[in-house]
Amino acid sequence: MIGLISRGGTRTPLTEAMLTAPASAGSLAQPVLAFLLGDAIAGPGVTALSAVSHVYGGLAILSDGEVEAVRLGPVGVVPAGLDLTLEAVLLEADGQIVDTATGAALGHPADALANAGGAGRLVVTDGLTPPAAIGRRIAAHFTHLGSVTL
C-alpha cells in the first residue's frame, strides 16, 4: 500500500499497481485531487495541509463503483498559497464538456488527509464531479494542476 483513497467517507488502500492498471471496458472516470505527504501528520504545529509536499490533479477510474485505478497528472504543485476549494476542473469526454466543479464540492479537499499517516503516502480525494463514461478519450483540466487524459 502506497496510500489511501477517500471515497464516500470510507478509506481503501491505494496500491502501486493501481497507478498503472488499464481501464477495463465499461469503466467510468472522475476527477480527483491527490496529496503527496512530505511529512507525517503528527506533532506540534503540523497541520494536515502543512504536511503535504505536492498536490496533483488526477482521474480515478471506477468499475462497479470501486476505484480500480488512478492516473495522476504531470503537474505537482506545492500547496502553500493555493486555495484548493477554488481549484476548478473541467471534465471532458470525447471532446465534449461533461461537467465542471471546484474543490469546494468536497467541503475542503484537505479533509481527505485526516488520519492519513506518514511521509511518502499518496492520499486521493473523493471525486469532484459525478463519474463519466470513458469513451475514446476522457480528460480532466485543472486550473493550476494541469491536465490528465486517458
Rank of each mutant, 00 (worst) to 15 (best):
I2K: 05
I2N: 04
I5V: 15
I5E: 00
I5N: 02
S6K: 13
G9V: 06
T10L: 09
T10C: 03
T10R: 15
T12C: 11
P13A: 15
L14A: 05
E16L: 14
A17C: 01
A17P: 00
A17R: 12
M18D: 13
M18I: 10
A21M: 14
P22D: 14
A23S: 15
S24F: 05
A25I: 13
G26A: 09
L28K: 12
L28A: 15
Q30K: 15
Q30N: 08
V32I: 12
V32G: 01
L33E: 00
F35D: 02
F35I: 06
L36A: 14
L36P: 00
L37G: 10
L37D: 05
L37T: 11
L37A: 11
G38D: 07
D39I: 02
A40F: 01
A42H: 08
G43D: 07
P44S: 14
T47M: 03
A48N: 11
L49M: 15
S50I: 03
A51M: 10
V52Y: 05
V52Q: 05
V55S: 04
Y56C: 07
G57Q: 02
G57F: 00
G58P: 02
G58Q: 02
A60H: 02
A60K: 08
I61N: 04
L62T: 05
L62C: 03
S63W: 01
V67L: 09
V67K: 08
E68D: 13
A69S: 15
A69G: 10
A69H: 08
V70Y: 07
V70D: 03
V70A: 07
R71E: 00
G73S: 04
P74A: 15
V75N: 08
G76W: 07
G76T: 12
V77C: 02
V78P: 05
V78Y: 06
P79F: 00
A80T: 12
A80M: 10
G81S: 10
L82F: 08
L82N: 08
L86A: 15
V89H: 06
L90M: 12
L90E: 13
L90A: 13
A93V: 15
A93Q: 13
G95T: 06
G95C: 07
Q96I: 11
Q96P: 00
V98N: 04
V98R: 14
D99I: 00
T100Y: 03
T100N: 10
T102R: 13
T102S: 13
T102H: 07
A104G: 09
A104R: 07
A104V: 03
A105Q: 04
A105Y: 00
A105I: 00
H108I: 09
P109H: 01
D111P: 00
A112T: 06
L113Q: 03
A114D: 11
A116P: 04
A119N: 08
G120C: 11
G120A: 10
G120P: 06
R121M: 11
V123I: 15
V123N: 06
V124I: 14
T129G: 01
P130E: 15
P131E: 07
A132H: 06
A132C: 08
A132T: 12
A133F: 06
A133L: 12
A133Q: 11
G135K: 07
G135W: 10
R136F: 07
R136E: 11
R137V: 14
I138N: 01
I138S: 00
A139R: 14
A139L: 02
A140T: 10
A140W: 07
L145M: 10
L145A: 09
L145F: 09
